[in-house]
Simulated assay, not measured.
Amino acid sequence: MNIAILDTGCSNLFSVKWSIIRLGYNPIITRVPEILFKSDKLLLPGVGTAKIAMQQIYKSELIDLIKNYKKPILGICLGMQLLGNKSDEGNINTLGLFDIPVSILKSKKLPLPHVGWNKVIHNKDNILFQGIPNNSWFYFVHSYSMKINKYTIAYSTYGVKFSSAIYKKNIFGVQFHPERSGKNGSKLIQNFLEI
């Protein structure tokens, strides 16, 4: 299986790569359109700002490729936020694969960014969470989020409820970092790769 990790110039690319290697696969980090298009699975990770990540995607002329990719896609953290239609972080348009905006996490009096372990309440019927107990802990680092919406398949609470996973057709997004979430995160990545 050809697994591609989109090179957005972000810092967690290699941790995502190693989490997949530990499962017995050989992923490649790339922004070469031909390699991305021929891949069987596409991961869109991200740590940093939406503006910088979108600049890299535009610069590499990958917008149409991502929008027309018909095989499974997994957006991770900032990568999930880029799947929405716009972000308040820099007030920019994003990929628009989900007609949902991303806004600052209204955490009430809790500090931002939201950093650390938090429970994820998920839809047990979705393949992404098969074999993962509900209310499992996953690792988060973010200040922006999607509100609960029609694509939400999991949510978490940090002052307010927010979407911690979304799904539509072939596209999945998780706000947490599965590559840093121990055995549950490893199981989620495995579930995605086995779709």
Rank of each mutant, 00 (worst) to 15 (best):
N126V: 03
S186D: 08
S156D: 06
S164T: 06
T152Y: 01
I52P: 00
L110N: 11
Q81W: 10
Y158L: 02
I100Q: 11
G90L: 02
L65I: 10
Q55G: 07
T157F: 13
D88H: 10
Y158A: 04
N134G: 09
I28A: 13
I52R: 14
M80I: 10
I104S: 08
G24C: 08
F162Y: 14
P45W: 07
I76F: 13
N91R: 12
F37H: 11
P111A: 02
I66E: 13
F129W: 08
S103C: 10
L65F: 14
K41H: 15
Y139K: 02
T30N: 00
Y58G: 02
S186I: 00
D40K: 01
K147Q: 12
Q175Y: 08
D88G: 15
M80D: 03
V115F: 12
Y144C: 06
K59P: 08
S164R: 07
V174Y: 13
F140H: 03
T30Y: 02
T8L: 11
P45Q: 08
L36E: 03
N26F: 15
K67Y: 11
D64A: 09
L83C: 11
I132A: 11
K71D: 00
V47A: 08
K183A: 05
S19K: 14
S11K: 09
C77W: 04
V32Y: 14
S145I: 03
K38G: 02
F176S: 01
D64G: 14
G75H: 12
L78Y: 12
K51G: 07
L23T: 14
A50D: 02
G75A: 14
M146S: 04
I29S: 02
N123A: 00
I29C: 04
R22W: 05
Y25I: 09
I76G: 10
N191C: 07
V47P: 09
K183P: 00
D40Q: 01
S107Q: 05
N91H: 11
M1F: 03
Y151L: 01
L62C: 12
K67V: 03
I166Y: 12
I92M: 12
F37C: 01
D99N: 15
L74W: 13
I66S: 14
G131K: 12
I66H: 15
H114G: 01
T8K: 06
L110A: 02
K161I: 00
Y144S: 02
T30P: 00
K71Q: 04
P178R: 09
F162C: 03
K70H: 07
S145K: 10
S87H: 03
K51R: 15
